[in-house]
Design a protein around this nucleic acid. Structure first.
Lengths: 200, 200
DNA sequence: CCTTGTTCCGGAGCGGGGTTCCGTTTGATC
DNA sequence: GATCAAACGGAACCCCGCTCCGGAACAAGG
């Protein structure tokens, strides 16, 4: 969704008429504004705040990004793609598949904990965020699965853990990791990854 | 807070005048109603729903339980106390301290995942729930710490994990464990506890 | 440049949920 | 029964997400 050009729809492939220039401009403005507001007020920031920051009406936000999840996905798409792309690379550059998995998960955690409240909203039980949930899963679970399979193949880890569950668990451990100085998710995530190793 | 009698304040010890009988009755009614509604609609259920279930006005709820956290704490106090009490008992009955820790955490997880949304609201980043957070921590962290110390003393586990972090992590892993049939927190919690073991 | 059709925008307004506030009721006391 | 503080109820208020429509901005053709 939301091509830089807008002359074709990515989902259908049908050639939709290109967007008007003011519409394209507003979309960019909105992404910048949302990114700014997300940093200071978290991803749950009131829609009106984002609209104010961008200098547009709330209607404009909903026209470009029907759900909050769409907006969040658009803002963080680049970083998620980068994270997904790093998976195979780490698999080659690391000493063992398990080490690659550990490092990749570290990247994911670093991404999550620097976005106020993102982890908290990644849970599917929050109605209306299925899109967000789905995007992260579609993009990252396959990568995680690849790393996991490699580690299984090399005999380093147990075989009874699904990529989905692992991603979900790591995401959960990051909930509230910002906003509470007493809590650092990283050591616990490491513990989890350590626990994956075969107990022999 | 909220004595059965009300003739003395637990915090100050000063003898406050006893509550009126209708007030005491309403408090009980409210606890029952809240417990019922929590089961079906989760701990985030609208205040008005709870009021309706109890057959009282919303003002009455706020008078007895100024914040939602107060209400939740009052509803689940018994179970939390039971969990806390089970710690020392398990330490005696189990084969090793690590086994006791594993079982105790299992109890805690069972408690959390059967309460819709409780885990999700246990995070301190949710403004207004510091009371809830504080109560769970005050009550359970010392118990966890005791088990953890015993396991450290017996040389079973590593020494660099704080009770607070562990409790927090386990709680986090339980977020959304209900409401998503694809996600079961227990195996991951087990992984975490396994990861505690000394890697030697 | 003007016209016309269309897209896009702004923000008032609706509904829902949390919280407060105050006039009324009720229990306790004498 | 009279008195008075405690407790109650729910209307009212505010904040927020989301919708909707009258009008402004744009693109295309005359």
């Amino acid at each position: 969704m939301s091509d830089s050009d807008g002359s074709v729809s990515k989902e259908t492939g049908r050639p939709g008429r290109p967007k008007r220039t003011d519409a394209r401009r507003n979309e960019k403005t909105l992404l910048d504004a949302a990114a700014t507001v997300f940093v200071t007020s978290g991803v749950d920031a009131p829609v009106r705040d984002i609209a104010a920051e961008a200098g547009v009406g709330v209607g404009t936000i909903y026209r470009h990004f029907p759900t909050r999840a769409d907006l969040i996905v658009a803002v963080y798409r680049h970083q998620v793609e980068a994270c997904a792309g790093a998976g195979p690379a780490l698999l080659e550059s690391s000493a063992t598949p398990h080490a690659a998995l550990r490092e990749w998960i570290g990247l994911f955690v670093d991404f999550l904990v620097t976005k106020h409240g993102l982890a908290g909203v990644l849970q599917s039980d929050n109605a209306g965020f299925e899109t967000l949930h789905a995007y992260f899963l579609d993009r990252l679970v396959p990568v995680c699965s690849q790393l996991l399979d490699a580690a299984v193949a090399s005999g380093e880890i147990r075989t009874d853990v699904e990529a989905y569950a692992l991603m979900r668990g790591v995401g959960n451990l990051c909930v509230g990791a910002d906003s509470d100085p007493r809590y650092d998710a990283r050591p616990l995530v490491d513990l989890l990854v350590t626990g994956l190793r075969q107990p022999r």
